[in-house]
Simulated scan of single mutants.
Amino acid sequence: MTGPTMNLLILGATGPTGRILTHLALRSDDSVTAFVRNPATLGDLAEKVTPVVGDATSQHDVLAAASGHDAIVSALGRSTSVRAGELFTRASAAVVGAAEESGVSRLVWLSSFGVGHTYDWASPTQKTIYRTLLRSIYADKKIADERIRSSALDWTIVYPTRLTHGPAQGTYNAADRLPMKGNPTISRADVAAFMHQSLHSDEWIHRSPVISD
């Protein structure tokens, strides 16, 4: 069940998870402002959303877009890059500052399982990947997540296991902590559905749900 329709500002709306989330929001009759660097990437969404061009690491840009929204959702990612480039550190500062200044209290933020405190719960296989291949990006995400947690916002930070491009199963598990074995996955479609549901509920406010198949 989803609650009343909302006016959403979505960062990363044209990314692989954000695009699915945007379509879900539109199907639920939410109004969507898509915050993008390049409006050409909107494609089929261009006629359905309110596009705002800006830089997610600029508080000025995010603030200009945020006013009047019920919530901010970030599905920002580094695509296939394993270098963080301080994207999450800088974007979290911009988003928290803009949200507090504009009075938008609700924030749903996409992180990754293995970041911060969730590393301790990872399987040996996962830990190897997190401390080698994903080390840079996870260090950046940890700073971002801690900044969000220490803010005055009604935040939810989502920790999915390894993302796939498969269809939504709807049978995933979500909890403050999940047991891990091997290197489990979850589809981006299921992550997008969980994020959308979280926006329309108070259940996960000030919580950091781990989600996995």
Rank of each mutant, 00 (worst) to 15 (best):
V53D: 01
G116K: 13
L163D: 05
A98W: 03
V158Y: 08
P16R: 10
Y138P: 00
H69T: 05
S112Q: 07
L110Q: 04
S79I: 04
T125H: 07
D61T: 08
D30T: 07
A25G: 08
W121S: 14
A139W: 00
T33N: 11
I148K: 06
H206Y: 05
A64D: 06
G68R: 11
P167R: 05
S198Q: 11
G18P: 01
I211N: 04
D176L: 14
N183F: 13
G3L: 09
I205E: 02
A25M: 04
I205M: 06
G182H: 05
Q59D: 08
T132F: 12
G77I: 11
A91V: 13
R147V: 02
N173V: 02
S102T: 10
S31F: 00
A40V: 09
R207S: 15
S67R: 15
R78D: 10
A65P: 01
D176A: 14
S92F: 08
R37G: 12
F35D: 08
S123N: 05
R162L: 15
S112N: 12
R131N: 10
S92Y: 06
E100G: 12
M6F: 01
V62S: 04
A144M: 14
T89C: 10
Q126A: 09
T5Q: 13
V191S: 03
V158I: 14
